[in-house]
Amino acid sequence: MTVRKNQATLTADEKRRFVDALIALKRSGRYDEFVTTHNAFILGDTDNGERTGHRSPSFLPWHRRFLLEFERALQSVDPTVALPYWDWTADRTARSSLWAPDFLGGTGRGRDGQVMDGPFAASTGDWPINVRIDGRTYLRRSLGGAVRQLPTRAEVDSVLAMSTYDMAPWNSASDGFRNHLEGWRGVNLHNRVHVWVGGQMGTGVSPNDPVFWLHHAFVDRLWADWRRLHPGSAYLPGAGTPNVVDLDETMKPWNDSTPAALLDHTAHYTFDAA
């Protein structure tokens, strides 16, 4: 069974295996297929039209499935690898071990935002940015550059306390747990973390930065925490909502699983601690 661990607790060997699997996926071309898929949904999901991956109730099950696909791809390279999660309420500075050269590497240099150390620095030749929206082919970051503070634990708890999963109009204007976690409304959790990292993480091709997976693994964990806190609260909407994925409707691009089938993560993985 896959156990997703807090990145801060990984051993040197676990970090090395995770990084090696990422680079192997990159080399094979499979990694970039995930970036392409994500950007297609970013461009296509709109508040007043069809919306599946973002700004909609299925933001959480869509990313759960997306991460499962990615984790299975990693495990096809090295079956011991699981996606770690980044608790950005705890590891909230650029000095975190997450950003050390033996793991993801650090922030970008001032001149052009280029990441200069770690396994994903352009100079390694292992991490070309191929799926891109501008001419730059190197990984970029500006940790804390565009927004100073990552969300705090108290801010996360204030969102976890919201008992309604999602609300009409089921988009970036909604009240409720999903949109507050996604960040279009309120204290802003998920969106703000993308902005805090900067570089490709602030764009539609955000999975170009491997921290994308660790960020979303924590967002996914927060959904699991929310379900435990609110056992009587259901995924919404239940049925009959135009342009929105209802509980029992299948999600693109897979067309073979529904939010209902993804509610219980323990069928696929568990977390290291309650």
Binding site: L43, G183, H190, R192, H194
Partner: peptide, 8 residues
């Protein structure tokens, strides 16, 4: 925009 997707 796609260049600054998460910061309205």
């Amino acid at each position: 925009s796609v260049v600054s997707h998460y910061a309205p």
